[in-house]
Every structure is written in structure tokens, then in C-alpha cells.
């Protein structure tokens, strides 16, 4: 019964009932992906909490090497980027393409600011000799605790994995921004932007927990 089916819009693949069916299926796939993301970062969080409970003084020493102002700045940057990402989708939904492109561009800019701050933090740590695991020489950094490398192992794994997500997210947002400029999206079809948006928000969500965990509580 496909002949003369005017309700089957051009962007809907033939195996979907309608546009909504296709959108919901795609979004469900993204949420399944988010479940794996939550559990992947969750494993690292659990590792951090447990080793923190075993070596509280060593973790306090590790956290004292971090500058909370840098983490605070990055938290504000990521929250703002989450807002602009959400607004990017909102403007596509209401048919305001130019505003959507500006919002997505601002989101990429915020991602870049975040990575620059991370770069400055990382290079400062390397300069001081604060490397992960066995690469940290306790004598060089005048460490009170011989296993201080464990703290920085967790620090670099968690922020490194998160930073990788930010970079991938920036790439994905660039992709949907170019597609928006080309006019590929409209209020009826914007599935890729929605999916990328959910991914970007979970990156923000993870940072919301990483900031107090690493920088404040220590």
C-alpha cells in the first residue's frame, strides 16, 4: 500500500510507519547508548569512591594539587553550552534556522573553551611531574603519600575520557551545524540534532559530578 501515500514524508525510511515512529526509534537507540555511557563512567566513579574510602589522606593530597577555580569555570562553560545546545534544537523546532546555527556555533565555542582550560590544567600538571600511576615519582613532586600516582591515574582517566567525549561532541555538533546551514532540518525532521543534543547533555551531566568529586571534596 505504498502507492500514493502522501503522509510518508521524504525523510522517512520505508520500514517506519511514519515520521514519529522513525524519530522515536532513533531516540530510543540514543538512550540505550546513554545507558552504556552512564555505566562506563559509573565504573570509574565507583573506583574513585572506593579507593577514596581506603586512602582518604592520599586523595586529599591529590585534590590539593587541583585548582577549583579552573573546574568551576569549566562547569559554568559546560552549563552554558548545554543551554545553547537545547536552544539550537528549540530554534529548529520553531523554524528559526539562523538562530539555531548561532546556538550550535556557540555550543562548539564553549566546547573549545572547555578544552583550552583542560589543556592548561594538564600541561601544568605535567610540568609539576604529576603523572598518572607509576609515572608519578613521589620524590620529584615531594609527595607525602607514596601511592599519589593512583589519584592522578583516576584523575587523568576520568577527565581524559570526559575530554574525549567533549571533542567527539564538538565534532558531532559541527556536523549537525553544517547540515542545519544546508537546510537539511526543519520542524518535522531534526533527528540527528536531537541525538547529538542528548549526547552533549550527558557530557555536561558527567562533569556536574566530576567537578565536586575531583576539585572540591577530593
Amino acid at each position: 500500500m505504498s502507492t500514493g501515500n502522501t503522509t510518508h514524508a521524504s525523510h522517512v525510511a520505508h520500514h517506519f510507519r511514519d515520521s514519529e515512529h522513525q524519530f522515536d526509534s532513533a531516540k530510543q537507540g540514543i538512550w540505550l547508548f546513554m545507558a552504556t555511557e552512564i555505566l562506563m563512567f559509573g565504573g570509574l566513579f565507583v573506583a574513585y569512591i572506593i579507593f577514596h574510602a581506603i586512602y582518604p589522606e592520599m586523595f586529599a593530597e591529590g585534590a590539593s594539587h587541583l585548582d577549583w577555580k579552573m573546574g568551576f569555570l569549566n562547569t559554568l562553560v559546560l552549563i552554558f553550552s548545554s543551554l545553547t545546545m537545547a536552544l539550537g534544537i528549540h530554534f529548529i523546532q520553531v523554524g528559526q534556522q539562523k538562530k539555531a546555527v548561532v546556538s550550535l556555533a556557540l555550543t562548539i565555542l564553549c566546547g573549545a573553551i572547555f578544552m583550552v582550560v583542560k589543556y592548561l590544567e594538564y600541561t601544568h600538571k605535567f610540568h609539576l611531574g604529576l603523572f598518572p600511576g607509576r609515572f608519578l615519582n613521589p620524590e620529584v613532586v615531594h609527595a607525602t603519600h607514596q601511592n599519589l600516582g593512583m589519584y592522578f591515574g583516576l584523575y587523568f582517566c576520568m577527565t581524559g575520557l570526559h575530554g574525549t567525549h567533549v571533542l567527539i561532541g564538538m565534532g558531532l555538533i559541527t556536523w549537525v551545524m553544517i547540515k542545519t546551514i544546508k537546510g537539511d532540518f526543519n520542524p518535522e525532521y531534526f533527528t540527528p540534532v536531537e541525538g547529538v543534543g542528548i549526547f552533549w547533555h550527558i557530557v555536561d551531566l558527567i562533569w556536574i559530578f566530576l567537578f565536586p568529586l575531583l576539585y572540591l571534596v577530593g
Binding site: V12, I79, S82, L83, A86, L87, H90, Q93, E188
Partner: peptide, 20 residues
């Protein structure tokens, strides 16, 4: 098949960001 997406009001996003 059109207009089935729930459009979250602009104001809700601004309030959420403000709270954050």
C-alpha cells in the same frame, strides 16, 4: 505525521540554565 514533537518553551530552558 507533523507537529508530533513536544516543543519545550524557551522560558523553561532559560529557567533550567538559571537554576543550574
Amino acid at each position: 505525521t507533523t507537529h508530533t514533537h513536544h516543543i519545550v518553551p524557551f522560558k523553561i530552558y532559560m529557567m533550567t540554565a538559571g537554576a543550574l
